[in-house]
C-alpha cells in the first residue's frame, strides 16, 4: 500500500489543480459571455436580438460537443497554447473550453433571476450599464452564483477523470492505469473514495458560503 500513497496524493493534487485552474479560466471566458447574453436578451438593458441569437448559437454548439471529442479536436490548439496535449497541463485547456459555455449559461440564468423591475429602478437612478453589471448584477446574484459553482466544479471533476483515460493526469489516470489495467481493485476503490470526498467537500463548502452570504435568508 505504501508506495501508492505518494502516487494517490500526487494524483489528488493534480486533479485539484486541473479543476481549480479550469474553473478559473472557464469563468474568465464564460462570465463575460453570460453577461452579454443577459444584457442583450429581450427585455435586457442592451436588448439586441442578433447578438443574443448569434452568441446563444455558439454557446449551444460548443455545449453539444461531447468532452472527449472536444479534447481530441483541440489537440493542435492545446499544443500551441501550452506546448503539450497530455498530462495535467494539457488537460486544462480542453477542460476550460468545454466548461466556458456552461459557465456562460449558468451566469445568464443566475442574472436573469434578478427582478427586472429592480434593474429598471436602478436605470431610473441614472446608473450606467457598467455600474448595473458591477454593483447590481454581481452583488444581487452572488448567492445564486455560489450555489452554481459546485455544479460546474463537479462536472469538471468528472471530465478531468475522463481526460485521465485519454492521456490526462490526475486521479482518472491513476484509476485507469493502476486500477483497471493492472487489476488493482484497491487503487480503483481508493480513487473513487477520494473523488466522492472531493465532490462532498466542494458541495458543502459552497453551500455554507452561499448561505452565509445570502442576506435574504
Amino acid at each position: 500500500m505504501n508506495p501508492y500513497i505518494n502516487l494517490l496524493l500526487e494524483g489528488t493534487l493534480e486533479t485539484i489543480l486541473m479543476v481549480t485552474l479550469s474553473l478559473v479560466i472557464s469563468a474568465v471566458l464564460g462570465v463575460p459571455v453570460g453577461v452579454i447574453l443577459t444584457l442583450t436578451k429581450s427585455g435586457g438593458i442592451a436588448e439586441n436580438k442578433r447578438i443574443y441569437k448569434g452568441l446563444g448559437w455558439v454557446v449551444n454548439m460548443m455545449r453539444s460537443i461531447p468532452f472527449i471529442i472536444l479534447m481530441m479536436l483541440l489537440i493542435p490548439f492545446t499544443r500551441w497554447i501550452v506546448g503539450t496535449s497530455i498530462g495535467t497541463i494539457g488537460t486544462i485547456v480542453p477542460l476550460s473550453i468545454s466548461a466556458a459555455p456552461f459557465v456562460a449559461r449558468i451566469v445568464e440564468t443566475a442574472l436573469l433571476e434578478i427582478n427586472p423591475q429592480l434593474i429598471e429602478s436602478i436605470v431610473a437612478m441614472g446608473a450606467t450599464p457598467f455600474q448595473i453589471i458591477k454593483k447590481v448584477y454581481f452583488v444581487e446574484a452572488i448567492p445564486s452564483l455560489l450555489r452554481n459553482i459546485p455544479i460546474i466544479a463537479i462536472a469538471l471533476l468528472g471530465y478531468s477523470a475522463m481526460a485521465g483515460a485519454a492521456g490526462g493526469g490526475g486521479l482518472g489516470d491513476i484509476a485507469i492505469r493502476y486500477g483497471y489495467y493492472n487489476y488493482n481493485t484497491q487503487i480503483m476503490i481508493i480513487t473513487i473514495i477520494i473523488l466522492i470526498a472531493l465532490v462532498e467537500i466542494i458541495q458543502t463548502t459552497f453551500n455554507i458560503l452561499a448561505k452565509k452570504l445570502d442576506k435574504r435568508l
Binding site: 423591475q117 429598471e120 429602478s121 431610473a124 447590481v136 452583488v139 444581487e140 452572488i142 448567492p143 442576506k215
Partner: peptide, 9 residues
C-alpha cells in the same frame, strides 16, 4: 417604485 425594489444583498 412599486414593490420597493431594494437591493436585497
Amino acid at each position: 417604485f412599486q414593490g420597493y425594489q431594494l437591493l436585497m444583498q
